[in-house]
Amino acid sequence: MSRYPHWPIHLALSIASAAMLVPFYWVLKTSLTGENIFTFPPSLLPESPHIFYYVDVWYAIPFLRYLFNSIIVSVIVVVANVVLNAMAGYALTRDFPGKGATILLFLSCMMIPFQVTIIPAYLITSEMGLLNSYVGMALPLASTIVCIFVFKAAFEAIPKSLIDAARIDGVPDWMIVFRIILPLTKPAIATNVILSFIWSWNSFLWPLVIVRDAQMQTLPLGLARFLSVVEDTTGALYAFCVMVLVPGLIIFLLAQKEFITGLTSGATKG
């Protein structure tokens, strides 16, 4: 394959990479200097960077509270997803009357984007008294059809003979689950964790609709609110942006491979 020179490819990819990275770099730079608000033309490298905008933001907003809220919602969503989807996925590997109808129901639910149900969903949540609550924020995301089918496929791929053999050897059920089924469905679980984490962590419209209480706001809500309250303090706004981006980016960079396989399998199935 390497009959052609590589440098044109590197050149093209470097330019494209730069286009992808410049926004990240620029927000980081501005958060450290704040200079671009007042200086034109902007300088490429940060001049006398300092972290005081971060200090300002830290004391101006309840960042830890937002972070805590975001984490709680994400944890509820991720745990609920893994448990509920695994259960439903397993049930769909079995034969039972109404199976076809159930699968059809799931598939047609998949054709209903959550955005088109948002008004009654809000009214229902309000009826259930779940406005301004973690459960209210998490519940619509608590089970995802894509992931149910991912689990179903994973369970179906486990050779039945393996489980039967273990059973004949008298291995108890819980041990079968932990020693055989869990390791074999690990990729499905990873996919599920990643997808539900992204959806809940970045979720904005739904919390925006059902959360009015400032104490219950998640990170994206807090950021949008900060944007609307303080308009002149650009350095601080970008510092907040960076603080919001960093947790997600850390997790992405740590679990890149799982992110990419998870998102592609999520997309190809959905």
């Binding site: 990479s17 992808m20 990240f24 994206p220 992110f259």
Partner: peptide
């Protein structure tokens, strides 16, 4: 690098 912009929070992307 190319994929990094996708999973990040859209609200922050909007501000940037």
């Amino acid at each position: 690098i190319f994929f990094m912009s996708y999973p990040v929070m859209t609200v922050a992307v909007g501000i940037i």
